[in-house]
C-alpha cells in the first residue's frame, strides 16, 4: 500500500528535509518536482469523475498549499511517501467533494499516479487578480511582488519599506489566507 520508497521519493525527502532547515532553493526544487506529479493525479481524478480537466489546476494548487502549510507534520525520520499520500488523498477528497461529486479516492489510486506522470503545461486557474483582491492590503502587495514580479523577501521588504521579518510574517499569513480561499472559508 501507498507510495513505496523509490529513488524519487528519497530525493524529494532530502529536498524537503533541507527546506525545513530553511533552504528555499531545495524547497523550490521539491515543489516544482511535486507539481507535475500532482497534476497527473488531479487530471485522472477529474477525468474519472467527469469534472472538466480545467479544474485540475485548482486541485494542484490546493494540494500544494496543504503540503506547504502542513509540512511541519512530516517527521524527517520517517519515509515521505505515506505522509504525502495521506495529504493528497485528504485534499483530493475534500476538493472533489466540494465540487459536488460522490467519490472515494483509495490509497492505491494515489500511488498509481506515480507511474502515469506526464509533463503538463502550467496554466492559471483561479483568476490572479480575483485571488489577490481577497487578500488584505499589505499581504496583497507582498504576494504580487514575490509571485508576479519574482522579487525575494529582502527585495520586497526594501521596496515596501517594511522589515524582512514583517514581510515573512505577512507572507505566511497570506498563504494561510489563500488556503482558506480555496477551502471556501474566506
Amino acid at each position: 500500500m501507498g507510495v513505496t520508497q523509490t529513488a524519487r521519493e528519497t530525493e524529494w525527502a532530502s529536498w524537503l528535509r533541507l527546506s525545513m532547515e530553511g533552504d528555499a532553493q531545495a524547497y523550490h526544487r521539491f515543489l516544482m518536482a511535486l507539481s507535475p506529479y500532482l497534476r497527473s493525479i488531479a487530471r485522472q481524478r477529474c477525468f474519472a469523475y467527469g469534472a472538466p480537466e480545467s479544474e485540475a489546476e485548482d486541485i494542484v494548487q490546493e494540494v500544494l498549499l496543504a503540503v506547504h502549510l502542513k509540512r511541519g507534520t512530516w517527521d524527517p525520520e520517517r519515509p515521505l511517501g505515506p505522509w504525502l499520500s495521506a495529504i493528497i488523498r485528504n485534499k483530493l477528497i475534500d476538493s472533489l467533494r466540494r465540487k459536488g461529486r460522490r467519490i472515494s479516492v483509495g490509497l492505491d489510486e494515489v500511488a498509481d499516479g506515480l507511474a502515469a506522470e506526464e509533463p503538463g503545461e502550467i496554466s492559471d486557474r483561479l483568476d490572479a487578480e480575483q485571488v489577490l483582491g481577497r487578500l488584505k492590503g499589505p499581504q496583497r502587495d507582498i504576494v504580487r511582488s514575490i509571485s508576479i514580479d519574482g522579487a525575494s523577501v529582502r527585495d520586497t521588504a526594501g521596496r515596501l519599506g517594511m522589515s524582512e521579518g514583517a514581510v515573512r510574517v505577512a507572507l505566511h499569513r497570506a498563504l494561510k489566507s489563500l488556503a482558506a480561499i480555496y477551502r471556501g472559508d474566506a
Binding site: S19, M20, G22, D23, A24, Q25, Y27, H28, L31, M32, S35, E57, V60, Q61, L64, L65, H68, L69, R71, G72, T73, I122, S123, D124, R125, L126, A128, V131, L132, V143, I146, S147, I148, G150, S152, V153, R168, L171, H172, A174, L175, L178
Partner: peptide, 20 residues
C-alpha cells in the same frame, strides 16, 4: 494565480515551518 507563481511564494516562505 499561476502554479509557478504560487510555488515561488511558498519557496520564499520556506523558514515559516510550524513544527508539530
Amino acid at each position: 494565480m499561476r502554479t509557478e507563481e504560487l510555488i515561488r511564494l511558498m519557496a520564499e516562505d520556506a523558514p515559516g515551518v510550524a513544527r508539530l
